[in-house]
């Protein structure tokens, strides 16, 4: 049974990791937390839902569609809530507030459009179960885990091997120097925000697939989980986000399976754990940049 729980946990954790990577990429280049990210995730999920259920697309095209939709939303985010606040003398709390605001707008506009109730999201995968001895792996789990892995590897490859990746890393190292070296900083920031949002959107579609439903209010809880994950993993640290996501996913699955009376505390796991880590090790589990020395 332990192995079964680990598989369930890793599947869930993979989506957390995808969401968390989105936060961490944006933090890497801008040193801000995008609190609208959970809603970008939700919009990606609903877009995927609409493409499959209303237009009859297959899962893969819908996934890509959801990512593109989320990426476009990322561009909107950059132009409305972020770019104008990147001038001197603006409090570093300002982007927190502006992104919370945009997030509220997105969520409630979506509630107006599709309602607050969950929408059934069925893809023609359900029912297929792979049995390995006592273990059961559903096709959905395989797809979710597989796609998460592929996206993470693709991201790693992009960051380490491509010109775009090099530019992103240069900007997150030091924007001024990058600009002097001829990097188009605004362009790279825009690209990063869109990329981060696309990953969030992909996570949305995957979560929709694995829970067989999407809703306009799903962004809140996942957004908060992702937030806990990145702080655990260390802000701006992609591998930390992956490790943190998987860890939280597994811990939650174990809490539900073995927690007995505490199973109901599943949703407190991430934040409880986060809280302890922050107090004991403010730079996160894997982070090197310390929460305490960042300019405030």
């Amino acid at each position: 049974m332990l192995w079964q729980q680990l598989i369930n946990g890793l599947t869930q954790g993979g989506t957390y990791a995808l969401i968390a990577i989105g936060y961490t990429l944006i933090f890497g280049v801008l040193e801000i937390i995008n609190l609208a990210h959970g809603e970008v995730f939700m919009v990606g999920a609903v877009a995927g839902y609409a493409l499959v259920m209303l237009l009859g697309w297959g899962l893969l095209p819908a996934l890509i569609g959801g990512m593109i939709g989320a990426a476009l939303l990322g561009a909107v985010l950059e132009f409305t809530a972020l770019r104008a606040l990147r001038r001197k003398g603006v409090s570093n709390l300002a982007p927190l507030i502006s992104t919370i605001g945009l997030g509220m707008v997105l969520q409630n506009v979506m509630i107006r459009v599709v309602g607050a109730e969950p929408l059934p999201f069925r893809v023609p995968l359900a029912g297929f179960v792979l049995r390995l001895g006592p273990l059961q792996v559903t096709a959905t789990q395989l797809v979710v885990l597989g796609v998460s892995l592929v996206l993470m590897i693709a991201l790693q490859w992009t960051l380490s091997r491509t010109g775009l990746g090099r530019a992103v890393r240069a900007v997150s190292e030091n924007p001024e120097t990058a600009a002097l070296l001829g990097v188009n900083v605004s362009g790279i920031v825009l690209a990063t925000v869109m990329l981060a949002s696309a990953l969030g959107g992909a996570a949305g579609v995957l979560v929709g697939v694995s829970f067989v439903s999407v809703s306009a209010v799903m962004g809140m809880s996942y957004g908060l989980k992702g937030l806990a994950v990145i702080i655990l993993g260390g802000l701006g640290n992609v591998s930390g986000a992956v490790a943190g996501g998987l860890l939280i996913g597994v811990l939650e699955a174990l809490t539900v399976a073995y927690g007995g009376a505490f199973a109901g505390y599943k949703d407190a796991v991430a934040f409880g754990f986060l809280f302890l880590v922050l107090v004991a090790r403010p730079q996160g589990l894997l982070g090197q940049g310390a929460a305490v020395t960042r300019r405030s």
Binding site: I231, L278, P282, V292
Partner: peptide, 18 residues
């Protein structure tokens, strides 16, 4: 106390959610 800005906001949000 040692947490600033973003970190403090998220940690206190964690407290609320817990």
């Amino acid at each position: 106390l040692r947490l600033r800005g973003v970190y403090l906001a998220v940690a206190t949000l964690g407290f609320t959610q817990s």
